[in-house]
Computed example of a mutant assay.
Amino acid sequence: MTPLTWKKSSYSGGGEGNACVEIAHHHPQVAVRDSKTPTHPTLTFPAPTFTAFIEALKRHPR
């Protein structure tokens, strides 16, 4: 199995930027993990569901 390529948000904050989540595309799913504990289990979502979630966040920013 090919290792996943994890990406961290550009909004991850200062310092080491380890206070956020990371995502990896693992077709047909998107994997999500806590950047502080990268060896712990991940959550996976169908790609369309994850995309809808991100689009909803963009429409309703904090």
Rank of each mutant, 00 (worst) to 15 (best):
L57W: 11
P28A: 04
A24M: 01
K36S: 07
A47Y: 01
K8W: 10
T49F: 03
H26V: 08
I23D: 04
P41I: 02
D34W: 07
K8F: 06
S12W: 04
V32F: 05
W6T: 12
S9K: 07
E55Y: 05
I23W: 03
A47P: 00
T37I: 13
A19N: 12
A52D: 11
H27T: 11
L4G: 06
N18W: 06
E16I: 11
F45N: 06
A24S: 04
A56S: 07
P38R: 09
L43R: 06
G15P: 00
F53E: 02
A19F: 13
A47K: 05
V32I: 10
I23K: 04
M1Y: 04
P28E: 07
T37F: 15
A52C: 04
M1W: 09
R33Q: 13
R62H: 13
P46V: 05
A47V: 07
H40M: 10
A31R: 10
Y11M: 11
P3L: 02
S10C: 08
F53W: 01
V32T: 12
W6M: 05
H26W: 14
I54E: 06
E55W: 06
Q29T: 11
P41N: 12
P46M: 05
V21M: 08
R59E: 14
S12V: 03
F45M: 09
H40P: 00
P3T: 10
F53L: 05
I23V: 15
I54T: 04
F53R: 04
R62Q: 13
C20V: 04
L43S: 00
P61S: 14
F50Y: 08
H60F: 10
V21G: 05
S35E: 02
R62V: 00
H27R: 09
H27M: 07
T37V: 14
P61K: 02
S9C: 15
S35P: 14
P48W: 06
T51Y: 06
F50W: 13
P46A: 06
A24Q: 03
G17M: 14
F45I: 07
P48L: 09
T39R: 01
T37C: 10
Y11Q: 12
W6G: 05
V30I: 10
P46T: 04
F50G: 08
V30S: 01
Y11K: 05
I23F: 09
T42D: 07
T5F: 10
F50T: 00
P61T: 14
H40K: 14
F53A: 00
C20E: 02
V32R: 11
P48N: 11
E22R: 05
T44S: 15
C20N: 01
C20F: 11
T5S: 15
S35A: 10
P28V: 07
R59D: 00
H40Y: 09
D34E: 12
F45C: 04
A52R: 14
T37R: 15
A56V: 01
T39M: 12
M1Q: 15
T49W: 06
D34S: 06
